[in-house]
Design a protein around this nucleic acid. Structure first.
Lengths: 243, 243
DNA sequence: CGATCAGTTGAGAATGGTCAAATTCGGTGG
DNA sequence: CCACCGAATTTGACCATTCTCAACTGATCG
């Protein structure tokens, strides 16, 4: 079993205890290994979901474009995450997904997913359960956009991302490597790129966090957590609920 | 079978063809009928999810409070929707739910859900599948907050709500009855109540939509749709994917 | 009939946006 | 090694959307 498979298995097992049949079905999701260049558009909004991907290495982001040409990034995907699952489940894709870095992923055809779920309904429950935890992150993001100031948003996003990365073994309490540009941050946080730059400068001058040259350093984790009102409990999990 | 049950069954059957055993399990979710006064807090953020509810009549809203006392409403629930499901699945509730009007709901204990899901994994998949469609609405809401102007947000929200209500037989193309106050709209759309008032006046003066005395009237549906960039395809569904 | 709550309006302030122009940085070719 | 290119970042000046504070209206209710 590859490192990726064990990571995903561990993630899913946090929700549902999986039997051998479930694990074999899951293993079949990893047959088609693919590689993509940075900037490649993996999934196109509005098209029927032909396939989803399980991210093995690299970063991606899912986003929606608006008629006026602006975009809103909904979420960032890191290794172990699914891409485009909802597009397959709802038969139509409501967002696009773009590779932020070069990335490695398993392509899972829509038919694989539907057949696999029919044969292994407990696996289906586990996958959807994990998706429902992802929704908790989207909700936090929504609160960011609705009610937090630009500084608070940035602080909250960087802390959440750091916590997620640590769960998959990338980065530590001191900081993490981050391939996102300030344009990505702007589209994530609903700000202009210019203002993102000012916010980052402000947080740096306050001694809270430094984001430079592709690296985020938490200079004052406690102060940053305080500013952001960050509570990581929604990311934690401690054992399968469904046995 | 009650009207509510058939509505929920229809909703779930859009995703997964349910067998008799699944339907019987689903029926057991409706044993505990409860009634709540407007303003009652159904679910408290931070507490372990003891039970969820299936809304039969009335409106509710789920929200998060911030340390500074402001709140962000994440979603509005109307009849046929689940309340507090994620709190049960993730063992801890990441948001609160409040009754907007007097409401009728079936209380479903956490143990009912977990036992039911273990016995009827296809039902579990169906419920989580429906939850994943709800996430599509949260994503639209997120885009509202991140990248749409106040006018566009209001237009988009009212159109989406109207479309959802029509799916459950409340309201029509002309408009709908809406018990939300301007304070609710403010907390939904990330605006101040004062600005909500100005936005509503502006949309009314433009002849697009009128919201007065608890009733929303679409004066110019086409113009409103154009302003909002509204595309309702993410709400549509046309037959079970998993047979 | 006072009290309360939702809605309405005005004036001034603030957060964040837009436009425009440097500056830095990582390659890349000579 | 160096000049150069394009992308990313940085900064300044000005502008606009939205917020805050405050006051007032109107409906509802005990």
């Amino acid at each position: 079993m590859s490192i990726l498979q064990s990571a995903l298995t561990r993630k899913l097992s946090a929700f549902v205890a999986l039997a051998d049949a479930d694990l074999q079905t899951l293993a079949r999701f990893h047959r088609r290994r693919r590689s993509f260049a940075a900037g490649h558009q993996m999934i196109h909004e509005g098209q029927p979901g032909q396939s989803a991907f399980i991210l093995a290495a690299g970063w991606a982001c899912s986003y929606k474009m608006l008629p006026d040409g602006t975009r809103q990034i909904v979420d960032v995907q890191i290794p172990g995450d699914f891409l485009g699952l909802r597009g397959v489940l709802l038969r139509t894709t409501d967002h696009s997904v773009e590779a932020v870095t070069h990335l490695e992923a398993s392509e899972v055809l829509a038919s694989d997913i539907l057949e696999g779920f029919a044969q292994a309904p407990r696996l289906a429950a586990a996958v959807l359960w994990a998706a429902s935890r992802d929704e908790a992150m989207v909700v936090e993001h929504l609160v960011d956009l609705g009610r937090r100031s630009a500084d608070e948003r940035m602080a909250h996003f960087l802390l959440e991302l750091g916590a997620r990365l640590r769960l998959v073994g990338a980065g530590d309490a001191a900081g993490f490597d981050c391939p996102l540009t300030q344009y990505h941050l702007a589209d994530l946080l609903g700000l202009s790129a210019v203002h993102v730059n000012r916010v980052l400068r402000h947080l740096r001058e306050e001694g809270l966090v430094t984001f430079q040259k592709g690296r985020v350093v938490f200079d004052d984790p406690a102060g940053l957590t305080e500013l952001a009102g960050f509570d990581r409990s929604y990311l934690d999990q401690d054992g399968p609920l469904l046995r």
